[in-house]
Computed example of a mutant assay.
Amino acid sequence: MQPRRSRRLLLPAAALVALTVGLVACGGTSKDDATASGATSGGAAANANPNATLKTGVKMAFLPKQLNNPYSDIEVGGGKAALGDLKGEYKLVGPNDASASSQVSYINTLIQQQQDVIGIAANDPNAVCPSLKQATAAGIKIVAFDSDAAKDCRDVFINQATTQGIGEGLVKMTSDLVGGKGDIAILSATPNATNQNAWIDVMKTELAKPENSGMKLVKITYGNDDDQTSFQQAQGLLQSYPNLKAIVSPTTVGIAATARYVSSSSYKGKVAVTGLGTPNQMREYVKDGTVKQFALWNPADIGYLAAYAGVALASGQITGAEGETFTAGKLGKYTIGKDGEIVLGPPTVFDANNIDKFDF
């Protein structure tokens, strides 16, 4: 069942349509400068033809943060399905760890293999930048998805939802769970993850507001999107901060590991666990009362949208300039926003009342 039809918004509708500012840059010509001069991020003159026919046989490689990550597996599965519909060629490559530089060698190999499009969820926005620029110079289109690369190193970025909306939603869920008072901690993925850091920055801003003054962020820790490391980090947080009221994990690996630890400990029912997770991995913890609510979008839709954007770029329908539009199959029509950002849509809040309606 597609969860896009059953979403409960995390924030007012006006905020959902606001596009976020580019997160980081790694020098050189910016996307805005390129657009103004009629050039792509690689510096070659280009004009979009919205009526161009989508090419078949487009070779698109997906490079997630790491392989064998349940969340990433769902994402790239959506990309594979879309490329099947588009009669393209799907390829999956990636590291087994989510370190900052682990993706660079794969980008270099994909350049040698003459891929048409690279879809990347960047572990570090700047570490991958030089190699992505080399790919662009070789005529390869770059679609960042889930976790952005520096904005002048890719053509478009597929964002799950607005950065502001996700950060606000995480704070609101946490406040609801702890009654607006108490010590809280964040268990993130890697220290350099673009999306995680952007959401956490918004959370810090929200927590500084008077209405959230009763909550205190005592620690941000990192599980490196590894299950056992995240499990140990959750255990360490609870032992180090005896007054902790909630652990917020904006990563699917972290929230599942935290819930697993809390569910079999004396903290169950005393410490709230929330963040971003998939219904299938969190269902048992919702059913046993460990987790009251969490949120996410459909990860498969991110990969699906990334594939359609990649083929649209390769076909000349879009260049990544603000205001361009394209149709992404079953997901409908999308408009490219500032800095080449394409926002999938608002996340869904999952709880005991609706979790069985979703299967992903």
Rank of each mutant, 00 (worst) to 15 (best):
Q112I: 04
T258K: 06
Q232M: 11
N197P: 02
A46C: 14
P346G: 10
N159L: 12
G179N: 06
Y267F: 14
V156I: 15
M282V: 08
A193F: 08
P3T: 13
T162D: 07
E284Y: 05
D226A: 11
D301T: 07
S30W: 07
L23F: 11
A14L: 06
R260L: 13
D32I: 10
G27V: 08
A295Y: 04
A36G: 00
I318G: 07
T335Q: 15
A15M: 14
R8D: 11
I142E: 13
G337K: 07
A14R: 08
L313T: 08
A312D: 07
T221A: 06
T136W: 01
S37A: 15
Q115C: 08
T35S: 11
V218W: 05
A306P: 03
G28P: 01
N69M: 05
L19K: 13
G22S: 13
F62R: 08
L11Y: 12
Q115M: 15
V349W: 09
T252G: 09
Q103I: 12
V178W: 04
Y334L: 11
A46H: 06
E89R: 04
I255N: 00
S265Y: 12
N298E: 14
Q113R: 06
F350W: 04
N68F: 12
M1N: 13
I111F: 10
A127G: 09
D32S: 12
V343I: 15
K292D: 10
A48T: 07
K141H: 15
L10E: 05
K181S: 09
D155P: 00
S240F: 01
L313N: 02
L244I: 13
P191D: 10
L92I: 07
T109G: 09
K80R: 14
Q66P: 05
D32A: 15
Y90S: 01
Q235H: 00
F231V: 00
Y241Q: 14
A18G: 04
L67C: 01
V17I: 09
P299F: 11
V76H: 01
Q114I: 03
W297F: 14
I318S: 06
D85R: 06
I120S: 02
Q281L: 07
K333H: 08
A328N: 06
D301Q: 14
V76E: 05
G214C: 07
A208N: 11
L11Q: 08
K338H: 09
E284T: 15
E341H: 12
Q112H: 02
T29F: 05
A259W: 03
W199I: 11
T29R: 15
A135T: 00
C129T: 11
F360G: 10
E211M: 08
G78Q: 08
Q114H: 13
W297A: 09
G277S: 13
G182N: 02
L296E: 09
L313S: 04
L187P: 05
G277M: 07
S72L: 13
S263K: 04
L83I: 09
I118W: 12
P346Q: 14
T205P: 00
L177R: 03
K330I: 05
I74D: 12
F360R: 11
K141N: 15
Q114W: 00
K245Q: 04
A36Y: 01
Q134D: 14
S37L: 15
A135N: 04
D85K: 12
R5Y: 12
N197A: 08
A246E: 07
E206C: 01
S105M: 10
T136M: 15
A52F: 07
K330L: 02
G167C: 10
